Amino acid sequence: MGSGGSRLFGTLAQSLTSAPSAQPEPYREESPDRDVSEVDPDQLLRECEEALRRRPARPHRDLVFPNATVPYKHNPSIRVMQWNILAQALGEGRDGFVRCPLEALNWHERKYLILEEILTYRPDILCLQEVDHYYDTFQPVMAGLGYQGSFLAKPWSPCLDVEQNNGPDGCALFYRRSRFTLQSTAHLRLSAMMLPTNQVAIVQTLGCQLTGRRLCVAVTHLKARSGWERLRSAQGADLLQSLQTITSRGGGQGAAATAATPLIVCGDFNAEPSEDVYRRFSSSPLGLSSVYKLLSSDGETEPAYTTWKIRPTGESCSTLDYIWYTRSALAVDSLLNIPTEEQIGPDRLPSYHYPSDHLSLLCDVSFREEPHRLM
């Protein structure tokens, strides 16, 4: 599995050369990504495939169309991808994936696997966690592909404890500039019991240029590890409170939930469905439902796993990642299925054929017709 010589980023050399060398302040509002040379995504995908020719193919995944879905022909779908991509510093330096060779984790090739996944599905909205190569890789590459990005680092990123790190990791949110206009951005540092924590969220309100409708999108990454369930619950409560305020703005006094901006929340919650933070989101006044429950026969059960790894402490197979949506205002037209155990392989994730210990989640959603538009 030697590293192959690659031309990747050959079409983006100018963008990467002009990428910022210094990272902005963590809570500073970012300027629009303008004056970037456009890149042909098909050409870039071919370059990724060429760079990865010595590696086994990524698991094949199919789109699933929920039986209850009604087509909304007048409202085109919006493709949303959620993914904890695994911070490079943590993958090589701290996470201890004992069955994954270090060669499989080198950034020179692993970044190609990440980009190949994104380019294969080409989301309109991309929500990422554990991003520690935002300014030198993802921001210039995604800008060249027509996306506007926003990044928020953790205040005390564990990546900084790793020698030869690339700066702190954090959350990133990208949207396609040809599809959306930005109406507002909130960079949040999540609190628990009124005390600031090390976890963050980005919330953006977007205007859909095809439908004239508004959509609020949030990305977050809650506290990891067992024993921190109460902290995760408090962080979730703090985020929900902020989302309630943001989505109801402009609705007037006592704005009804039906008048609020539809919401999508993506994240690595580090919480199984049995945890209190999951129950908080399921029962929130915002009317949220989890997209990936639609893969189950009863429509009420999450997948068996979204992350599967082997560390020195043992094997961990868990459901921690979610896409939440406002079920009264949005319809899920399709979603990407979960690879089987056989596809993942006996050494689990990450691996030569998959770049992260978390699986990407992806769905196509569309706006439901508003009642006043049906009259």
Score class of each variant (00 low, 15 high):
Ser328Thr: 00
Tyr305Glu: 10
Thr319Phe: 12
Ser334Glu: 05
Tyr322Ile: 00
Arg311Gln: 14
Ser316Phe: 14
Ser289Lys: 01
Ser316His: 12
Leu295Thr: 02
Ile323Ser: 03
Asp333Cys: 02
Leu295His: 07
Ala331Phe: 01
Arg327Cys: 02
Thr313Asp: 14
Gly287Trp: 14
Leu295Ser: 06
Thr313Pro: 03
Ala331Thr: 12
Ser318Phe: 10
Lys309His: 03
Thr319Val: 10
Ser296Arg: 01
Ser290Phe: 08
Leu336His: 11
Leu330Asp: 01
Ser334Trp: 00
Ser290Arg: 06
Ser318Asp: 15
Ile310Glu: 15
Cys317Met: 14
Leu330Tyr: 07
Leu294Glu: 08
Ile323Cys: 04
Ser296Cys: 07
Gly314Phe: 04
Leu294Cys: 05
Leu330Gly: 03
Ser334Pro: 01
Thr307Asn: 13
Leu320Ser: 08
Val332Gln: 02
Glu302Asp: 14
Pro285Gly: 00
Leu336Thr: 10
Lys293Leu: 10
Tyr305Phe: 15
Pro285Ser: 04
Trp308Val: 04
Ile323Thr: 03
Asp298Arg: 09
Lys293Thr: 11
Lys293Arg: 15
Lys293Cys: 14
Ala331Leu: 11
Tyr292Lys: 01
Asp333Arg: 08
Ser284Leu: 13
Gly299Lys: 06
Gly287Glu: 08
Ser284Ala: 12
Glu300Gln: 15
Asp298Ile: 05
Leu330Cys: 05
Tyr305Met: 09
Val332His: 01
Pro285Arg: 14
Thr306Arg: 07
Thr306Leu: 07
Ala331Ile: 04
Thr313Ala: 14
Trp324Phe: 15
Thr307Val: 06
Trp308Gln: 07
Trp308Gly: 02
Leu294Asp: 07
Thr301Ser: 15
Pro312Gln: 09
Tyr292Val: 02
Pro303Val: 00
Arg327Asp: 02
Thr319Asn: 13
Cys317Phe: 11
Arg311Asn: 09
Ser297Gln: 15
Ser297Met: 11
Ser289His: 03
Ser290Ala: 15
Ser289Thr: 04
Ser334Met: 00
Ser284Lys: 13
Gly299Pro: 05
Ser328Asp: 02
Arg327Leu: 05
Leu286Gln: 13
Leu288Gln: 07
Leu294Tyr: 00
Pro303Ala: 01
Glu300Gly: 01
Leu320Met: 13
Trp324Cys: 07
Glu300Val: 02
Lys293Pro: 07
Leu294Ser: 01
Thr306Cys: 07
Ser318Glu: 15
Gly287Leu: 13
Ile310Arg: 13
Glu302Cys: 10
Glu302Gly: 04
Pro285Phe: 11
Glu302Trp: 08
Leu336Glu: 11
Leu295Cys: 07
Asp298Val: 03
Gly287His: 10
Tyr305Trp: 14
Leu288Tyr: 08
Ser328Glu: 03
Tyr292Asp: 09
Tyr322Cys: 05
Ile310His: 14
Thr306Tyr: 07
Ser290Cys: 15
Tyr322Ser: 06
Cys317Val: 15
Asp321Trp: 06
Glu315Ile: 12
Thr306Ile: 03
Leu320Pro: 09
Leu288Gly: 02
Asp298Gly: 00
Tyr292Pro: 00
Tyr292Glu: 10
Gly299Arg: 03
Tyr305Leu: 09
Asp298Phe: 02
Ser328Ile: 01
Ser283Val: 00
Val291Trp: 06
Thr313Met: 12
Pro303Lys: 02
Cys317Asn: 11
Thr313Glu: 15
Leu335Tyr: 08
Leu320Ala: 09
Glu300Thr: 00
Trp324Tyr: 12
Ile310Thr: 15
Ser284Ile: 11
Leu288Ser: 05
Tyr322Trp: 09
Trp324Asp: 10
Asp321Asn: 04
Glu300Trp: 06
Ala329Arg: 10
Pro303Asn: 01
